[in-house]
Design a protein around this nucleic acid. Structure first.
Lengths: 254, 254
DNA sequence: TAAGCTTTATGTATTCCTTACATATTCACT
DNA sequence: AGTGAATATGTAAGGAATACATAAAGCTTA
């Protein structure tokens, strides 16, 4: 089988070029249709889904590896990317089960150690800018509603849960959410984003007041037409003001 | 030289028993004399200081390894211990320089890869409960004022800086500071702790009000005698109330 | 083209939290 | 008994968070 051969080659390459026993897993968040989405890959010739991930070259910074993996496996460049936790349980998952599910070739000749420690990164991306594309290891790549994930490979459900918790905490600290929206967005869109991530309804008057008080977004004259209702104004995130507010410490959101 | 032999043996053991290319570094914070302290070790036959650290057994959870290392190298059990960052730069430090400084034996025969990725943990301990003790790799173990650290081995100054930043953020989020104080403490002691970590003065009336409003400490009838001044009341941290407040989300401190 | 439906935009009163600020008290020491 | 040093504490003002309701806009469709 061609794929199996490819996989063997890949593992051989990894064993030679990469740091043994370490991997990177990326939780890529996007926002669409008022839902927080996660980008998942379906492994070739299986119905098994998992997070995009990969390995670290022997003389490569882990941060750079995370960026590279993200780019290799999703085509996304320049995004909000942050390390959030390193997963080092002694038993992260049933290795035999995984090997079976993915029809992995016999790995007994590999250099790879029994246990893999994985460094978790999460990314926030503009949903509209991503074209999910499967790569040589996978048959399919698509967004999944974070609330409706299937049972994932490895300990990836757990990793997503930790990433999500981290995202929630971060959102209360600094307005990272902008990274999930296109350049121009409306106030209701922003509110939906917050409501979705924080998982609770927010009052539109208070939300608008608070967001505008932060002084890091600016209202454009443009409005978004097309809906069967009053056209909302468009806003834009102002990075300079954001950096300034960051330095001055006026950034908390509760 | 006996020590050099010991070191060789140790490295050999590590190569056999431990996960290759991964290490753990612990930043142990204590509080004394109104100063935030960090526990450092001086390597044998050198004047070089570094963080306590170690390696992970092949089938050991990284969290457990961190606890074990802490216990092995400081005698401390049961403490607040938390993973805060994984350091995976391609060049974390000048390896040759380190090898020279520590008079390491020739390591060319080792299994160990060129680059080590280190998982950082920070610990908060009751200063009075720790008896700094050097181990077989070190000549001396003592507390250093976090503001007056010497130039440390590896990238340990950087690791301490990141740990400190994390601690500051955490302190604004939840009252982790209790872990740095003995069971009974006075309000001024608690205030000094916060002032030290946050690096700014706080108003005693407001501080007391706020702390008591959190509802997680209780005032005892006891007072601390001995100073040439009004005896302060003793307080105790109430863990049950704390857990409850945590669940209800009433824990932020700004 | 008018009515209807849906969504957006917005102000005010109340409460709560944060901040600023000064003095009386206690205890040991002399 | 007086002194010095640290502790304990209340109140007023300002700012932020919350609760709450209605008018206007834009498309649909009758």
């Amino acid at each position: 089988m061609n794929y199996k051969k490819q996989l063997e080659e890949y593992f051989k390459e990894v064993d030679i070029r990469c740091v043994l026993g370490l991997s990177i897993d990326c939780v890529i968040f996007g926002f669409y249709d008022n839902q927080l989405k996660v980008l998942l890959l379906r492994w070739k010739q299986t119905e098994e889904w998992g997070l995009p991930g990969g390995f670290i070259y022997k003389s490569e910074s882990v941060d750079v590896a995370a960026q590279r993996i993200l780019e290799e496996r999703t085509g996304i460049k320049e995004l909000f990317l942050q390390q959030f936790h390193t997963f080092g349980e002694d038993v992260r998952y049933n290795r035999q089960e995984i090997s079976q599910k993915l029809s992995w070739p016999d790995t007994s000749s590999r250099q790879w150690p029994d246990r893999t420690v994985s460094i978790g990164y999460f990314a926030l991306v503009d949903f509209s800018k991503v074209t999910p594309t499967a790569d040589f290891l996978t048959d399919e790549c698509r967004w999944w509603d974070v609330e409706k994930l299937p049972s994932l490979l490895f300990d990836h459900n757990h990793i997503v849960a930790v990433a999500l918790r981290t995202l929630r905490v971060q959102l209360s600290w600094q307005p990272v959410g902008y990274n999930l929206l296109p350049e121009k967005f409306t106030m209701p869109e922003l509110q939906r984003l917050y409501e979705t991530i924080l998982n609770r309804p927010l009052d539109p008057r208070n939300f608008s007041k608070k967001m505008r008080a932060l002084g890091i977004i600016e209202r454009l004259e443009e409005q978004r037409k097309g809906g069967a209702f009053k056209s909302p104004y468009l806003f834009r995130f102002n990075k300079e003001k954001y950096e300034k507010a960051l330095q001055e410490g006026n950034l908390a959101f509760s």
